[in-house]
């Protein structure tokens, strides 16, 4: 496997192919001169009024029953796409680039919520980036069995390695565990250090890892407070992290306190 930007795995592991949170129904229209060239609806309804006059955008909003409508010029989008293509093969980065540029052009950016957001990506590319090395890997390891067992029986897993460079997601691919002893993976809960160290020597980069059961991970992805799910799984010995350094322990304590405070506020 030689993909450094495995878009399919990124979606399958990180976002679990889950449907998106439902936002206010939105119509995004693409203008070309005085016409609406094409449009897309957040609800998945097919848009069928190609080349409608730009002035009719209000009527179209009513017709398709949307609560918010935004529009921008096709010419600008074409230029953004051309620029995004020059970024290489990282579709995540390309889409991020297109998003950031499109936001500047849409009429009411504050009303559009973009949810291509993940607590892991947010955490490692946010303020934390200044405390972490310039370049490092993050392993997300998911055990697909209903509960942990150290045997190889029915063991299946999904994993993705995210490479961050200066706080930006640079590469994402399935890690190569082929040289690791076959017993190490099913025993991830007992010895996550072995897996973490293996990846550090394999990819010659510092590695941070989060090991969980798929069922817990699903809750993290769909729930409002993913860190509380992670903390509770750690407390119940259903999850593991690597490395257990002082910094990581402090961060966990911080997440624990903030989770407690937000629960208290609720």
């Amino acid at each position: 496997m030689d993909l450094s930007h495995d878009w399919k795995s990124l979606n399958e592991v990180l976002f679990c192919q889950k449907g998106l949170a439902k936002h206010a129904p939105t119509l995004v229209a693409l203008e070309d001169g005085k016409k609406i060239f094409d449009a897309v609806l957040s609800t998945g309804q097919p848009y069928s009024d190609r080349l409608a006059a730009r002035d009719t955008i209000g009527e179209l909003s009513l017709k398709y029953g949307v609560e918010q409508t935004v529009s921008f010029a096709k010419k600008e989008l074409d230029q953004i796409v051309a620029d995004a293509a020059s970024l290489g093969t990282n579709y995540f980065q390309q889409l991020e680039y297109v998003r950031s540029k499109v936001y500047k052009h849409v009429n009411k950016p504050s009303e559009i919520r973009i949810s291509r957001d993940h607590f892991i990506l947010r955490f490692f590319s946010g303020k934390m980036a200044s405390l972490l090395p310039r370049r490092f890997n993050v392993l997300v390891f998911l055990d697909q069995r209903p509960s942990f067992s150290s045997t190889l029986l029915a063991f299946e897993h999904r994993a993705i390695l995210l490479t961050f460079d200066r706080g930006k997601l640079d590469q994402f691919f399935e890690p190569d565990f082929s040289s690791l002893h076959e017993q190490r993976l099913p025993e991830w809960l007992l010895d996550p250090v072995a897996i973490g160290k293996y990846l550090e020597s394999r990819y010659i980069l510092p590695c941070y890892g989060i090991f969980m059961l798929q069922s817990d991970w699903d809750q993290c992805v769909t729930g409002d407070d993913p860190w509380s799910v992670v903390i509770s799984a750690l407390d119940d010995h259903r999850a593991a992290i690597y490395p257990r350094t002082g910094l990581v322990k402090t961060l966990i304590a911080f997440q624990r306190i903030s989770g407690y405070l937000s629960g208290f506020r609720r």
Binding site: G19, L20, T26, V28, L30, F37, D38, V40, L41, S42, T43, G44, Q45, P46, Y47, S48, K74, L77, V81, L95, V98, R99, V102, I112, I114, S115, R116
Partner: peptide, 16 residues
Amino acid sequence: YQGLLTEVFDFQPSVG
């Protein structure tokens, strides 16, 4: 453009 905007805005794709 449908596909691109669907990805950019995280919308539901149009089956139609």
